[in-house]
């Protein structure tokens, strides 16, 4: 089993990840996070080194059956209650800063 190539996390990668996750990071935080995330990736590299040929991929850690619901409407209209928590509503709509494709 060849050693997996260790992928070094660059500052560009980190900025891109932060932008995808909508996180605003200060440059001081970038330095710390780069080290910490790099450590996580090192751990992943160790895992990659394990020979998993013949092992079924695992999609979930719990060995349980997925519970299913019957197709029945059980919810009632609680819009007023939910919208009382929202900063701005109008005509039954939640209002948010404008987004345009």
């Amino acid at each position: 089993m060849p050693e997996a190539d260790a992928v070094a996390l660059t500052e560009t990668d980190l900025k891109r990840l932060a932008s995808l996750a909508r996180l605003r990071l200060e440059s001081s935080e970038l330095v710390v996070l780069k080290d910490q995330l790099g450590g996580v990736l090192d751990l992943v590299d160790q895992l990659q080194a394990v020979d998993t040929r013949g092992v079924e991929p695992l999609a979930h850690a719990l060995d349980l059956e997925l519970p299913l619901r019957e197709d029945v409407v059980t919810e009632v209209n609680r819009r007023e209650q939910f919208q009382s928590m929202s900063p701005q509503v109008e005509s039954g709509l939640y209002l948010v800063p404008k987004v345009i494709e």
Binding site: Q88, E90, S91, G92, L93, Y94, L95, V96, P97, K98, V99, I100
Partner: peptide, 14 residues
């Protein structure tokens, strides 16, 4: 998302 008539905001119907 509804983009008209909300004084520069977008209306969301979920």
């Amino acid at each position: 998302s509804l983009h008209e008539d909300f004084h520069g905001l977008s209306g969301i119907d979920l």
